[in-house]
Simulated assay, not measured.
Amino acid sequence: MTDKDNTDWAHTGHASKERAEKARRLAGYVWQRDITGADLLELPDPARRKLARAAGINPPSTDETWTLVADLLNEKDAWAARNPQHPAARREHADEKILWVKPPVRPWTAGP
């Protein structure tokens, strides 16, 4: 978003700081639900907005923030894989993943 002076307010230092903070909060909520960065980016926009609201966060208005969340999730996954015994590597709500990311549906096959 720009004004008459062509100031890009969405990319000021303050906006970047706010975006990063929102992404960290979202990533914390999403990671606890065992949702990967790839899972998150594949979710349709309405589902991502609903996920943000469930986290108590105003949904991001740009894909830039969601991409940052996905990057943070990937970093946390890598850290958790290297530190599996650390308490912060445990997901407290992994069973909720099914609420957000549906497993692929296997085709029904007719019997003989």
Rank of each mutant, 00 (worst) to 15 (best):
A47F: 03
P103H: 10
L51D: 00
Q85C: 06
A80C: 14
T65R: 06
N58M: 06
R91D: 10
D45K: 15
W9R: 14
L73E: 00
K50N: 14
R25A: 13
E42V: 04
T2G: 03
L99N: 13
T12Y: 07
A80I: 03
P103V: 06
R19F: 08
A81F: 06
I57L: 02
G56V: 01
A47S: 13
K76L: 09
G37E: 01
A54P: 02
A10I: 03
L26T: 02
G13W: 10
A38S: 15
D95W: 13
R48E: 00
G37A: 03
T62P: 02
Q85N: 12
P84G: 05
R49L: 03
L51T: 00
W108N: 11
A27T: 02
L72G: 00
A70T: 00
G28R: 10
D95E: 15
W79A: 09
T65M: 06
D3V: 03
K97M: 04
I57T: 00
W108T: 14
E21D: 14
H86V: 06
P46W: 05
T2W: 06
G13Y: 12
R24K: 14
E75Y: 11
A94E: 10
D5C: 08
D8Q: 07
L51G: 00
P84H: 05
M1R: 14
T109F: 11
T36A: 08
H14F: 09
R19N: 15
A47L: 11
G13R: 14
P44L: 09
P103K: 13
P44K: 13
P104W: 07
R25S: 10
P59S: 02
D34P: 04
A54M: 02
H11Y: 12
G37I: 00
D95C: 11
P44H: 11
T65C: 12
P59Y: 00
A54E: 06
A47E: 10
D95A: 15
A80Q: 07
D77P: 01
R82A: 14
D8A: 05
P60H: 02
N83R: 09
A47D: 11
W31R: 08
K97T: 04
N74W: 08
P87V: 07
A89Y: 04
T67P: 03
A80F: 05
A10H: 11
N6L: 12
D5W: 14
G28S: 13
D63S: 12
G37Q: 02
H14N: 13
T7W: 09
P59D: 02
W108I: 12
R48L: 01
R33I: 01
R53M: 05
Q32F: 06
A94Y: 08
D63Y: 10
R24N: 12
R25E: 08
N58P: 03
Q85K: 15
D3M: 05
R24W: 08
T65S: 11
D77W: 06
A88I: 02
P104Y: 08
W79K: 10
G37M: 01
A70W: 01
W66Y: 14
W9E: 04
D63K: 13
T12M: 07
G28C: 08
I57D: 00
A70C: 03
N74R: 15
D3H: 05
P87H: 11
R49T: 04
E18S: 12
D71G: 14
R90V: 11
A81Y: 07
V69S: 01
T36R: 07
D63C: 06
H93V: 04
E21M: 14
L99C: 11
V30W: 03
W79V: 05
A70S: 06
T12W: 07
E96N: 10
A23F: 02
A94G: 11
